[in-house]
Amino acid sequence: MALLEVHDLHTSFSTDDGLVRAVEGVSFSVDHGRVLGIVGESGCGKSVSMLSIMRLLSMRQASTSGRVMFDGVDLLEASAAEMQNLRGREIAMIFQDPMTSLNPVYRIGWQVAEAARIHDATLSKAEANKRAEAMLTAVGIPSPRERLASYPHELSGGMRQRVMIAMALINNPKLLIADEPTTALDVTTQAQILELIRTLRTDLGSAVVFITHDLGVVAELCDEVVVMYAGKVVERGGVRDVFHAPQHPYTWGLLGSLPGRNLRSKRLFSIAGSPPSLLDPPTGCRFAMRCIHVMDRCRNDEPALVSAPGDEHFVACHLAPEIRNDAANQFPGGTA
C-alpha cells in the first residue's frame, strides 16, 4: 500500500458570494521515497488539496470530504489530537513564502527546536538546540551555531527557506509536502533548494509531494505528476509519460506555452481565455470552453479518468485515444 492515498477529495468554501468548489474529486497516491509533483495554474486547487490533507483549513469556512489514508490512518477521520501528533512528526509541510512563514519575533534556533520539542516532551532545551544546529548544518546553512540566534529578517530568502526545510525535517517525517517552495526565490537560489530537496530525499527516504506551477521544476524533481485544472485532476502519470506523451489538451497547452521548449515555433501556443469561476463551474468538462478540440459531448458529460498509454497514466478527456496519441506524438521525445 502506498504511503499516502487520496480518494475523491472534495473541498469547498462558503463565501458571501456562494459556495466555491475549490477541489472536486481529486485522487492520487505517493509511495515511500517517491516525489509526486502537482502542477496547475493559480486557483486550480493544488494548494487547497494539500491544506485539506493536513487539515490546516479553517473548519468554519471550508468543508472537506473524501478519504485520505496516510500510513493506515484516515486523516479526515482522525481526531484533532491525532492530527496534531502527526503534523510536524510524520507529515511536514513547507510553504511558498519563506519571508512570511517564519515568526518574525522568535529566533531561528527557537523555531527550529520548537518543532522537535512539541513532539518530544522529554527533550531538554539544550538537546533540542543541538538537534536544531545539526539540522541547520544538514540543510547547508553556514555557521549554524551563530544562525540559531538570528531572527528571520536577518536572513536572505534562500536561507529562510532552508530554515523552513530544517524545521520540517527535524523529526524525520515520512512525508514532506512542499507548497511552491521555490516560487518566491531567484533561479540560482531555486537551484540550490531543489538540489537540497533531491539530496534529502535520497538521504532520508521521505516521500515528497511537490506543488508548483512550473513544469520545469516538475521535470527536474518529480517521479510522478498530477495535472490539475479548475479543481480537478485532468491527467496523472509518470513524469516521462506526461511530458513525452501528454494526453490532455490542457497539458498540451501548458507544455506548448513554455518558451524554453518551443524555441523554433513561430508563435507560442497559448490557451485562450482564463479558467472558469469555481462559484459556478460549467457542467461537463471544465476545460471545454478553452479547448480547441471541444465536442458537443464535452459540454454535457463530465469525462472520467481513463487509462492512457504508459504505466499508471490516466487522463480525463472525451477525445478518442487515437486523436490524443497523434497529438502526443508531436511533443519532443514522444514515445506513445
Binding site: L56, L86, A92, S101, N103
Partner: peptide, 17 residues
C-alpha cells in the same frame, strides 16, 4: 491568518500554543 501561524500548526503545535 498569517503564514507563520499556519507554519506553527503544520509543526504540530497545539491550538493553545
Amino acid at each position: 491568518g498569517e503564514d507563520y501561524v499556519r507554519t506553527a500548526r503544520a509543526k504540530g503545535a497545539s491550538e493553545r500554543r
